[in-house]
Structures are given as structure tokens and as C-alpha cells.
């Protein structure tokens, strides 16, 4: 396809030149935008590999010219001294169950909303759409009080449960929109063949919904991995050994003020996994955004 298009357009040098001149404004604008978007990240990435003394004395761009003095010290420091290795594992331990649980719970609900008849179905789904935008702030105090009385503050269980509750409206919304658009005949003929709803769910609905489930998994994983507020409230700074990376890095930033060499290393450690997920599964990520764009 690409080759065909390229051959079709294969221009004579003159028309190529005049077309290029016509498009020069367009390319300039885009290149400037891309540079503006990349420079902040590149700047901190470069600084994260520079010794602290140099970071304070000169801008990151000076490191792009010889003599090169790049070092892994900042990474070694934050992993060993700033507890960030533990935080990295905590982030994983928090994110994986907090992604898996809501997907299951949402899939059951989405299937019921899509393929079962019951009174109040539409009203109930409208409530789910309404809950999409409820600010977490409006839930923090009662939930914290509840967790405190159950002795759950500072535990992973608290954040798993909270993230499941908070992630559900979007998860149900996205999966229901997808499952509801699957062909009706498939489920009807399965029912005629005597398949129970459980069989139809696991054999038909789930396999056919894999793209939506993948999109949802990426979304929920990134949401939990990147979350600051939920962990800050329900784990709390008084349990430093259970905190995820985001909370610790926010602390490094607020307490250190300007010590950017460690902050840079810490930030890039926390970004590594999201970036891998992003570049590996960008297609599903985009699909999730476009398919679920009522989400706030």
C-alpha cells in the first residue's frame, strides 16, 4: 500500500521542489512543535546522567559537547539511598492487581448491561455515566475513615480496592460500548444451541472484546501507576515502605528544591515502564482514548 502510493506520487524533481516550497511553512511549524515537545524531556534525561556538581553549574545542553562526563551515579543513588527500588516494586504490586480486578468486575457488569434485559437497565447505566466525572476528592474523607476503622490504611489492599472502585465507571462504560456493538446473532444462536450465559460470556463475549480489554488494561495500568492522590491519602507518608514511586518522587521534589540530578534519575525510572507500555501498545492506547472519550 505504502509502496504503491509512493510510486504513484513519485514526482519529477521539479514538481517535488515546488510542492516542497509550498509545504515549507507546514513542515517548519510541525518541526518546531515537535522540538518544543521533546526539549523538556531531553533536558531532564541528559541531566539525569550528569554529576550533580555539573548540573548545578551549567545547563544540560553543554553536556552534548565534549568532554563527555556522563555517569550512572544518580540512578545508583536513588535506587539505593532514596528507597526508589522498593518504591518501584511497590508501584508494580499496587498496579497489577488494581488493573486486573476492575477488568473482571467491569466485564461482568458490561455483559449484563449489553446482553441481559432487566428493569432499570438504562437508568442504572446513566448513573454509571454520571459517576465517570465524580471527583475523587468528594470520596476521600469517608473512605479514609472507613479504611482507618478497618485497619487498612497503609496497606496495598486499601489502594487495590479504592482503585477498583474509582476505575470501574470508565471500565464499564468502555467495555459496554464495545460488547454492546458485537453482533446480536452470535449471542442469539449460542442461546438457541443451549449455551448458558456463562459459556457465552467466556467463549464469545470475552474473546471478541480483546481489543477493548487491552485498551482498558493499558489505561487502568497507567492510571494506577501514575497515580499520586490515591496513594498519598490511603497509604500515607507515614508508611514510606509501602509508597509507590510517584509519592516518593513528589517528596524528593518538594524537599530537595533544586537537586535536579537525583530528581531526573528518579523521574526517568518511574517513566520507564509507562514508556515501554506506550510504545509497545500505542494502537490500543489510542483506541481506548477514542472509544471512551466521555471520561474525565
Amino acid at each position: 500500500m505504502t509502496t504503491a502510493a509512493a510510486t504513484l506520487d513519485a514526482p519529477t524533481s521539479r514538481s517535488w521542489f515546488s510542492r516542497m516550497r509550498g509545504k515549507i511553512g507546514l513542515h517548519t511549524a510541525l518541526v518546531i512543535l515537535m522540538i518544543v515537545w521533546l526539549v523538556p524531556t531531553v533536558g531532564l534525561l541528559v541531566n539525569s546522567f550528569r554529576p550533580g556538581s555539573e548540573v548545578d553549574g551549567s545547563g544540560w545542553w553543554t553536556a552534548l559537547f565534549p568532554p563527555y562526563t556522563f555517569t550512572f551515579e544518580n540512578y545508583a543513588h536513588v535506587l539505593s539511598q532514596a528507597n526508589l527500588g522498593t518504591n518501584f516494586l511497590n508501584s508494580l504490586f499496587i498496579s497489577i492487581p488494581a488493573t486486573v480486578i476492575p477488568i473482571f468486575v467491569a466485564a461482568f457488569a458490561a455483559y449484563a448491561f449489553s446482553w441481559m434485559e432487566f428493569p432499570g437497565r438504562n437508568i442504572l447505566f446513566v448513573v454509571v455515566v454520571g459517576l465517570l466525572v465524580v471527583p475523587l476528592q468528594a470520596t476521600l474523607i469517608p473512605i479514609l475513615t472507613l479504611f482507618a476503622s478497618w485497619g487498612l490504611v497503609g496497606t496495598f489492599l486499601a489502594v487495590w480496592l479504592a482503585h477498583t472502585g474509582y476505575g470501574l465507571p470508565f471500565a464499564i462504560y468502555l467495555l459496554r460500548n464495545f460488547m454492546g456493538s458485537l453482533p446480536r446473532e452470535v449471542f442469539e444462536s449460542a442461546a438457541i444451541d443451549g449455551a448458558s450465559p456463562v459459556t457465552a460470556f467466556f467463549r464469545l463475549a470475552i474473546p471478541m472484546s480483546v481489543p477493548a480489554i487491552a485498551a482498558l488494561a493499558i489505561f487502568q495500568f497507567l492510571f494506577v501507576w501514575n497515580d499520586l492522590l490515591v496513594a498519598l491519602i490511603y497509604i500515607n507518608l507515614i508508611h514510606p515502605d509501602s509508597l509507590p514511586m510517584t509519592v516518593n518522587i513528589a517528596n524528593l521534589i518538594t524537599s530537595h528544591g533544586g537537586g535536579t540530578e537525583f530528581i531526573g534519575a528518579a523521574a526517568f525510572l518511574s517513566m520507564a515502564l509507562p514508556l515501554i507500555v506506550f510504545f509497545g501498545l500505542q494502537r490500543y492506547f489510542v483506541r481506548g482514548i477514542v472509544g471512551g472519550s466521555v471520561k474525565g
Binding site: 531532564l44 535536579t260 530528581i263 528518579a266 518511574s270
Partner: peptide, 25 residues
């Protein structure tokens, strides 16, 4: 070009804060 503009959405706001403190310093 889309990936370049899109990628900051994948990182945490905390990391974005770290990145931009280096811009505003």
C-alpha cells in the same frame, strides 16, 4: 509526529513536574 506530541500523556504528572522544573529553573 503524533507520537512525539502524544507521549507525555503516558507519564505521571509528578514526572512531568520534574521535567518542567528543569525548564522553569
Amino acid at each position: 509526529a503524533k507520537s512525539v506530541i502524544f507521549v507525555p500523556l503516558a507519564i505521571s504528572m509528578v514526572a512531568a513536574g520534574a521535567i518542567w522544573l528543569n525548564m522553569w529553573l
